[in-house]
Design a protein around this nucleic acid. Structure first.
Lengths: 207, 207
DNA sequence: TAGATTGTTAATCGATTAACAATC
DNA sequence: TAGATTGTTAATCGATTAACAATC
C-alpha cells in the first residue's frame, strides 16, 4: 500500500472524486489537468502532483480518461470495498446518517443502531431496531463491524468508544464535540460541527 | 481587524477554544504553552506562534490565564456576537442542527426553518414552523439573517443559494454534497460528510 | 510528424519547529 | 533576585507552483 502520502493530498482526493463523478454524469470522456484545474479552481500542477503520488493515471498529449481516473481514485479511497457501520446515538444526527448511508452511499451498510435511552428500545428507524448499549458487547461478538459512527454527547461518546475498542472496533467516525484518545492502530475521523460553525463566524467577522 | 492570518491557524482556533473550555470546567486558572502542548498533542512552539498572530495573551514566567485566553479566542472567533440562522431543509440533518444550535450554542438563534416538501408546511419542529421555499424572499425582507445552513440535496442547495444571495444572504453553512459558486464577499463553510467518510475509508485501508 | 499534455525535477513559497533573548 | 516562560527571530521542513523534457 502506498504510505507516506501527505494528509493534504488525501484530503483533496474526495473532492477530485466528486468532480470526476460530475464529469461522468455530464458524459465527458477525457479531461486534461488544465481543464480540471479551471473547473475545480486549483492549479494544474497540484492536480498532476497529487495524482502522481499514486502512479501515472494519464497519458501525454491526451490527458486523463475520466471514468478510469474516477475508478482509480475510488480504489485508493477504499470505495471498492464494503463496510458494515454501526451508529451509536439514535438522535436526529444518527438518523440523518442512517438515512444518508443507506440510500446514498454505495457499499456502506448500517448493521445496527444503538442508544442508551430506554424509551427508544426496539423502535424502528428505517427498518433498523434501536438496541440498548448493554447489548453492544454481545452484538459485536456476533457481527463484524468496520466503522462506528458516534453521534451522541461527549461523555457518552468517550465511554462508548472505550467499550467498542475493548470489543475490537478500530475505526470511528466521531461527531461528538471532543477528541478521542485512541492507540496507534485505531483510526478516528472527526466531524466537529461546532468547530466548523466557529470557522464560519470567524470568516463572517474578518472578511 | 487582523487579516492575513493563515487558514491553518484559523482552523486550529476552535480546538484551542474547546480545550480551554475544558480547563475552565476543571477549575484550572493558568496554563503554560508547554502544558497545553502535552494535553493537545501539538508543539508548544505552534501554540505560541498561533496566539501571537493576534497579539500577546500570555505573560513571561507565568503562562496564560485560562479564562482570559478563552475569552480572547472567543472574540477572535466572533463568539461575543449573536447570529440569526436559517435552516433550509427540514430533514433529519436540518432538525439535528436546529436542536444543537438552539440548546447548545450560545448566541445562535434559529430564526426559521424552510423546506420544499408541501407536506411539512406548518409542522412544528422544536417550536419552529416549517415554511415553504416560496415564502423565502418575503421572509428575508422582514428578518435579518446572518447565516443560512443548507441541509438539502445538491440541486436544491444550489437553487436555494442563488435565491438567498439575491435576497442579501452572505454566509452559508453548506452541508450539500457540492461546492457553491459564490462571489468574493460571500463566505461559505462546507461540511462535506461524504468527503469525510471517504477520508475515513482511506485511513482504514492504508493504516 | 506536430501538438498537446503528462510526469517529474527544480524553484518558490509558506508553515512548523527550534532557539533564545526579553521579561514577568 | 532566580526561575520560568513568553514573544519573536532564525532554521528547518514540507507543500505548492513553475518549468520543461519525455512521450503519446
Amino acid at each position: 500500500m502506498e504510505h507516506n502520502i501527505s494528509k493534504a493530498v488525501i484530503g483533496r482526493l474526495p473532492r477530485y472524486y466528486r468532480y470526476l463523478g460530475d464529469l461522468i454524469d455530464a458524459d465527458i470522456e477525457r479531461i486534461s489537468s488544465g481543464e480540471l484545474s479551471r473547473i475545480m479552481q486549483v492549479t494544474a500542477s497540484q492536480i498532476r502532483q497529487d495524482l502522481n503520488n499514486f502512479g501515472g493515471f494519464g497519458q501525454q498529449g491526451y490527458g486523463y480518461n475520466v471514468r478510469y481516473l474516477y475508478e482509480e481514485i475510488g480504489k485508493i479511497l477504499g470505495l471498492d470495498k464494503t463496510y458494515q457501520m454501526l451508529i451509536i446515538g439514535a438522535g436526529n444526527l444518527g438518523q440523518a446518517l442512517a438515512n444518508y448511508v443507506q440510500f446514498e452511499k454505495k457499499g456502506m451498510y448500517i448493521a445496527g443502531l444503538f442508544d442508551n435511552n430506554p424509551r427508544l428500545k426496539g423502535t424502528l428507524i428505517r427498518d433498523i431496531p434501536v438496541r440498548m448499549m448493554e447489548e453492544l458487547p454481545a452484538f459485536l461478538a456476533e457481527n463484524h463491524i468496520d466503522i462506528v459512527a458516534l453521534t451522541l454527547p461527549k461523555a457518552g461518546a468517550i465511554a462508548a468508544c472505550q467499550i467498542l475498542m475493548e470489543n475490537g472496533v478500530k475505526s470511528f467516525w466521531n461527531f461528538a464535540h471532543t477528541d478521542l484518545e485512541v492507540p496507534e492502530d485505531v483510526v478516528v475521523q472527526n466531524v466537529h460541527l461546532s468547530d466548523s460553525l466557529m470557522e464560519l463566524t470567524y470568516k463572517i467577522n474578518h472578511r
